[in-house]
Design a protein around this nucleic acid. Structure first.
Lengths: 221, 221
DNA sequence: TCATGAATTTTGATGATTCAAAATAAATGA
DNA sequence: TCATTTATTTTGAATCATCAAAATTCATGA
């Protein structure tokens, strides 16, 4: 009965927005509404309801923040989403570019029991196909901070660990250029004027825009 | 956008009820409402809407029947449900007693693409774990008629091919007594007064009630 | 054929989720 | 500070799926 699909989606959207926000800073309603594709007034109404239920702290005209119970629930939705993505790629052999939308639906339909079985079958993975960390059964885990292709050192071997964009087109681009998580690369040069980052992958050279470069998180090896 | 989850459930319920009905005979609203666990008036309202959409033929005070488009849609829901059940048992190693409820949720969440992949992976199975036939991608297939343990010949080897009850308790009973589809048995004796059917399985004897016996469909080998 | 009982439909209402547009509050720049 | 822009909240309304209870229709047996 409780968390309806709709509520689960609101909580998940808030959690994901909060991650990109400094601690304590409230998430404005406009951003939340945009993330969910609903009218601003709709988000306001829902926040009042969620605040009533103790899942968020809502300050009129300022924004929202998940409470501890709200965050736990949201993390469990995210856990289901990411385990399902990993499952669809590993077990069902689907392309990583197409699993996001599928998981978006399935995350609200799978039982606790099935999710645990999936987790087992995958050997309790820590990240999904995009490198996004998978929360444990108890909720969120601490996020490791990674550099991206704009902030990492030049001419130093790094490994792609995460791609922070779920868009199928972007993911296909990354795949076509063999820049998926796990791949070893080096940033050769950055050219702010040209809005370009030149990446070396073995003997090949790939040029990507700075906007795209910021979405590739890497770890210095 | 069309078939909402709710509509899919109505169509599926009608299809399953129609199967147990003589051709042309209308399904009364009371039965439909009971099958879905809704108030009779609710079913009436929904039938008017579905008739409007051309998915059912509705005759006030008489009942409903699926139209060709309605039947096709319903069959596709049933296809998803049964493929998912088979998948959960074969691939995920879940117990056949627990897959029904899971499939009830997932059938509304899986994409066409994922269902085709599941179908592939399973080798295009004809039946689900309960022996229920799986409709093809184009809709319903002709149903084979089977005898049940009340109508099959006595003292003749038969193979269980289908169990027409999804209740976990009943399924566990069937499993515990090793009477799952595929199993070879013989009806030794029927005792109407005792409401009992005595079944021989290899050297063992199992006694089951007539109500239960009617739910075990068999094929004479 | 007619009174009764059972099934079905109608009616009025509710809760969840949403929108568009009006009202209001907050932030901004001169 | 104050007028203006921008963001947020409020308001009024719509849709979907549902219910309980009243009204209606159908079928039955005397």
């Amino acid at each position: 009965m409780f968390p309806s699909r709709t509520v689960e989606n609101y909580l998940k959207a808030i959690l994901q927005a909060e991650i990109a926000l400094p601690p304590e800073q409230l998430l404005p309603m406009g951003q939340l509404a945009a993330a969910l594709g609903v009218a601003p007034g709709t988000a306001t109404t829902m926040m009042k309801a969620l605040a009533e239920a103790g899942l968020v702290r809502y300050e009129p005209y300022a924004g929202v923040r998940l409470t501890a119970p709200g965050e736990k629930l949201a993390a469990l939705v995210l856990r289901r989403h990411r385990l399902i993505e990993q499952f669809l790629v590993q077990v069902m052999g689907m392309s990583w570019a197409e699993v996001h939308d599928e998981a978006e639906q399935l995350e609200h339909a799978v039982s606790e029991r099935l999710i645990e079985r999936i987790d087992d079958m995958l050997g309790r993975p820590q990240v999904d196909p995009h490198g996004d960390p998978i929360p444990g059964p108890e909720g969120m885990v601490a996020q490791r901070e990674y550099a991206n292709l704009l902030s990492c050192p030049l001419k130093t071997p790094v490994v792609v660990v995460r791609v922070t964009d779920q868009g199928p087109d972007f993911l296909r681009f990354i795949e076509d250029n063999e820049l998926k998580p796990g791949r070893s690369i080096e940033v050769e040069h950055r050219d702010a004027a040209a809005d370009a980052v030149i990446v070396r992958r073995d003997a090949h050279r790939v040029t990507i825009g700075m906007r795209a470069a910021s979405k590739l998180l890497v770890e210095v090896v």
